[in-house]
Each structure stands twice: as structure tokens, then as C-alpha cells.
Amino acid sequence: MASLPPIDLPRGATGAGAFDALAEGGENNVLFGFLLRLGDDSLILGQRLSEWTGHAPSVEVDLSLANIALDLVGQATHFLNHAGEVEGKGRDGDALAFRRDVLDFRNCWLVEQPNGDFAQTMARQLLFSGWQKLLFQALLGSRDATVAAVAEKAVKEVTYHEELAAEWVIRLGDGTEESRRRMQDGLEWMWRFVPELFDMDPLAAFVAEHGLGADLAALRPAWDRRVRSVIEQATLRVPADQRPILGGRRGHHSEHLGHLLCTMQFLPRTYPDATW
């Protein structure tokens, strides 16, 4: 297991030190890290959403959430299988998903947050799918053919996720007194995890410069326009910016991720020969 990475070093310091090792490993090493970010985001949110199965407000919503979860797990399979090939150590997507420890996960904090109530889940989905849609649109032009191909398939999926989440945010926000309160609370809870989505740390900058990834900071204006428009239609208020929480991209996670992995990884770790 990797050791606990340092928390929020000054920007200049990380650029000088931590990523020299990556650069020495060559572009493949950076590409591996980039693919883990893409795959882990989808994987962890897919696992989170699947927790709703059997518990959603109605059987129809149950199916909606399970469908989104399956789309995300499908994306994760593609990204992590590709990551395993790039790494070249014989690990496939399953090995990366089920035999990796929490400090080696590279997903953002937003996706590992607990579901909370239905409004909180929809708040997370709107913020995340809105970002993922813009990201995948940008990745259509990735120099990595697999990334571009997965993005092309996935952009249609996440467009639907984002629209569905927007519909619910608008209905709950502009609904009853209780649904309105819960929807506003959900947005407030999730808002602090937004800056991490657009954070251009050295790895993100590297893959953007080399035509593999996207300029995340450049996605922010379009994301802001869309999310603010939905929140406005929902007659809610845009949450005030809070102190951003960063670190997921370097393996520094909230306590929630370990618990999620316990559930997700239990079976293949306990029965290594199991097949499905």
C-alpha cells in the first residue's frame, strides 16, 4: 500500500518534486495516472449509486439510478482495462478495481460522498454529470484513441444523466417546502467538492499539454452557465463558494471511500477464485 501522500503542498513545491518521478517514467506513467482518474470517478460513483437499488422512492426511480450506475461501471471497465494495458504489469480492469487499496484510488472527492437523501444524490449527479459531459466532449479529440472512443460512447450516456438530474433538481427545488429545503441542503453539501473537478494539478496540465486530456479549467465557464441556469429554474440559490477540498487525485480521500471499497471489494478479495 502506498504511504499517505502530503496534504495540499504549496503549488510550486508539488510541481518541483512529486511529479519528477512521473516524468521519468515517461508519458505512459502519466497516462496510467490519467486513466485511473477517469476510471475511478466512474467506478466509485457507479458503486455509490448502486446502493440505491431497492431503496429509491419508487421502482421507476430505482431503475433510473441503476441504469446510471451501470453506465458508469461500463465506462470504468473501459478506462481501467486500458489503464492496465498502459501499465503493462498484467493487471486488468478487475484487478485495478478490486485489488487496489484506498490510497491508490484517484477519484475526486465528490463521487465518494455518501448518497444522503434523494435530493443530495441528485445534487451530486447534476454537478458531476455536468462536468463529465463537458470533459468527455473535450476528450473526443484526445490523442489516445481508446480515450477518444470511450468518450464518444460515454458522452451520450452522461448527457442523459445530466438531463435527468437537472429535471429532478428543478422539480424538488420548485416543489414542496420540504423538497425545496432538502434540495438546497444537498447543493450546499456537495458544493465544496466542485473546485477539485477543475483543478489543473501537474498531471492534469501535463496530459492537457500533450493532447491526451482536457484543459479542465477551461470547462468551468460552460459548467457554471449550465448549473446556474438549472439552479435558477429550480428557484434555489447558488451556494456560496467554500474552502475547496482537494487531494483525491493524489490518493488523499475522505473516510467514506474506504468503507465503500470494503463493500465493493469484499467478495473478490475473500474468494480470489470467484468468477462472474
Binding site: V59, E60, V61, L63, S64, N67, L164, E167, R171
Partner: peptide, 12 residues
């Protein structure tokens, strides 16, 4: 409502 009904029909 009708719009959510379409989405539920799609998902179901």
C-alpha cells in the same frame, strides 16, 4: 408529470 414519465418509460 409528462417529462418525467417519458424518462421513467425510457429507463423501465
Amino acid at each position: 408529470d409528462a417529462e418525467i414519465a417519458l424518462r421513467h418509460a425510457r429507463d423501465t
